[in-house]
Nucleic acid binder design. Structure first.
Lengths: 151, 151
DNA sequence: CTAAATGCAAACAGTTTGCAGCTGC
DNA sequence: GCAGCTGCAAACTGTTTGCATTTAG
């Protein structure tokens, strides 16, 4: 969050009230979210925020390296907050509820960049995407996560 | 190729001339391709083939487990022929020329399904996507692959 | 006061779908 | 001959963009 502010300040960009709200919402997310989700949640604080602003803000946060993009189950762009990882990210994408859960995977980059290098490429972003079904749904008929009692 | 024929036969579907052409084209591809690429190439054999048929055929080949989907650099759906791999696939996606190159990565699934399992999910598809830049382009100013002297 | 940010509506791109006619079996 | 396939054009969906207006610094 402070990093986002810093990023904007450095580039001579403005910290507006809308951006503040979006940032607060973004950085309090445990899972990945798509633009629509974020709009929903941000509008609870300011009902006028528009989708385009959401997209624009997500772009800059991504450029700032504070978010990574993941493809959701329905091909939507999803975003998740990056921790300390450099350029590699792992996510589980649930086929049942569509939820996208970040996974710790500290050595992914180390492990996987080698082979790519050997084929004549320099890896820039590595992402592991695991599409999966929810065990709980399988057992109980409902998936706790699908009711989005989140945050 | 024979597998595709078999798949259709089993399901009571037809082997048409259009499908034959599309299959030939698909299964002679060294790299991943998107619908447009495939249309291009298939039309060299039959100038009337339509995009919708391409999409529809790609879908069934994917259902048949003969193709996997990868996200291209421009967010297009790309497809690559699966070898013997089960449910895991690795690709390098070149940021420079957009080409998508399949990577051998025999143990990916073994290595990566564990952690997902522990979080309460059963992995169904695992895909490793490495977005990279082309070393050659970096050195020489042109990327051999970008002129698509392929196949 | 000026450059940047916003909301809105319109534009876009890739993909999917409905339908009338054609084709394999 | 009937189920399934095809091409076309139209519909869709998520995302991006142009523009007139507002706002931070």
């Amino acid at each position: 969050m402070e990093q986002a502010v810093a990023y904007w300040k450095v580039r001579g960009l403005k910290m507006t009230s809308v951006r503040k709200i979006i940032c607060q919402t973004v950085f309090s997310s445990a899972e990945a979210f798509d633009a629509e989700d974020l709009l929903q949640r941000a509008r609870q604080k300011d009902g006028l925020i528009s989708l385009s602003t959401i997209y624009r803000t997500l772009s800059t946060l991504q450029e700032a390296g504070l978010l990574v993009e993941v493809e959701g189950i329905d091909r939507k762009k999803c975003f998740s907050v990056v921790g300390t990882q450099t350029s590699a990210a792992s996510h589980v994408v649930c086929q049942d509820c569509g939820q996208v859960i970040p996974l710790e995977n500290p050595c992914l980059s180390l492990r996987e960049s080698g082979p790519a290098h050997q084929t004549g490429f320099s890896p820039k972003k590595i992402s592991l995407r695991i599409e999966a079904t929810c065990d709980e749904l399988e057992r109980c008929g409902t998936c706790v996560r699908s009711n989005k009692t989140k945050e």
